[in-house]
C-alpha cells in the first residue's frame, strides 16, 4: 500500500454496478488500497444505503437493470449535496461517455480499469467533495447568521459591503449616525466577523454584492 497513501479521514466510495464479480473485486481492491468502498448492486440499493456525512464519491456503471447510471446522474444533478460521479463503461462507448460528462460526471473510465488512474480519480473526487461540503457548511452558517439580522441591520449590512459611509447610510435610512454605529457593531457581532473585509466575504457567499438591495432573496 506504499505507493498510495491512504486517504486522510473518513470517506465513502459507493460502487454502483450490477455485475457481481466486478463490484466485489473493485470493493476488495479499494479496501486493500486503504479506502472505504460501499458496494451497491443497483441504483435503488445506492439510494437506500446509509449515507454518512463525510466526503464521498460514486463509481457508477452505465447500464443496469432498473434505473440506469445516467438516470441516477440526472437525478443527482438536482441535489445540492450530491457526491461527484466517476462513470465506468464496459466498452469505449463514446456517445454514452459524452452524455455522462454533459450530465455532470466528474470523470469517465473504461473497463478494465487502470488502477493508477482510478485511484487518482477517486482521490480527486473525494477531495472535491470535501471542499464542496466545507463550502456548503460555511454557506449554511452564513445564511443562518444573516437570517438573524433585523430588517434595519440588513440595510446597514448591504450599505457597509457596498462601501457606504455611516453618514450616507444615516441620511438614507433617516436615523442618527450613533444608531448606525450601534447597528453596525450588532451586524459585525451577529455575522461573527471582525472586519469589513470579513463582512464582504460573507456577502460574496450570499451573492448580494452584484445585486440590488433585494435582501429578501438573499435570505432564502
Amino acid at each position: 500500500m506504499e505507493p498510495y497513501e491512504p486517504l486522510i479521514g473518513e470517506h465513502r466510495v459507493y460502487i454502483v454496478d450490477d455485475d457481481d464479480s466486478f463490484r466485489a473485486s473493485l470493493a476488495r481492491l479499494l479496501s486493500t488500497a486503504g479506502m472505504s468502498p460501499i458496494p451497491c448492486r443497483s441504483v435503488g440499493d445506492y439510494l437506500l444505503v446509509e449515507h454518512p456525512d463525510c466526503p464521498s464519491c460514486i463509481v457508477l456503471d452505465m447500464l443496469m437493470p432498473g434505473p440506469s447510471g445516467l438516470e441516477l446522474l440526472a437525478s443527482l444533478a438536482h441535489q445540492r449535496d450530491a457526491p461527484p460521479v466517476i462513470f465506468v463503461t464496459a466498452f469505449n462507448d463514446i456517445p454514452a461517455t459524452v452524455q455522462a460528462m454533459k450530465a455532470g460526471a466528474m470523470d469517465s473510465l473504461t473497463k478494465p480499469l487502470d488502477m493508477e488512474r482510478l485511484l487518482q480519480s477517486l482521490q480527486d473526487a473525494i477531495a472535491r467533495d470535501a471542499r464542496n461540503r466545507a463550502a456548503r457548511r460555511e454557506l449554511e452558517q452564513v445564511q443562518s447568521r444573516y437570517s438573524e439580522l433585523t430588517p434595519c441591520e440588513r440595510d446597514i449590512y448591504i450599505g457597509v459591503v457596498h462601501g457606504k459611509l455611516n453618514k450616507q447610510m444615516a441620511l438614507k435610512l433617516g436615523i442618527c449616525e450613533r444608531s448606525i454605529k450601534s447597528h453596525r457593531s450588532n451586524v459585525m457581532r451577529k455575522m461573527r466577523v471582525s472586519s469589513v473585509a470579513g463582512l464582504v466575504k460573507t456577502a460574496k457567499l450570499l451573492d448580494v454584492l452584484s445585486g440590488t438591495r433585494d435582501t429578501q432573496a438573499v435570505s432564502q
Binding site: F22, S25, L26, P112
Partner: peptide
C-alpha cells in the same frame, strides 16, 4: 467477456 476480465484485473491488482 470484458466484465469478467475487468474483475480479474481488479483482483490481480489487489
Amino acid at each position: 467477456i470484458a466484465q469478467p476480465l475487468s474483475a480479474i484485473l481488479n483482483n490481480v491488482e489487489t
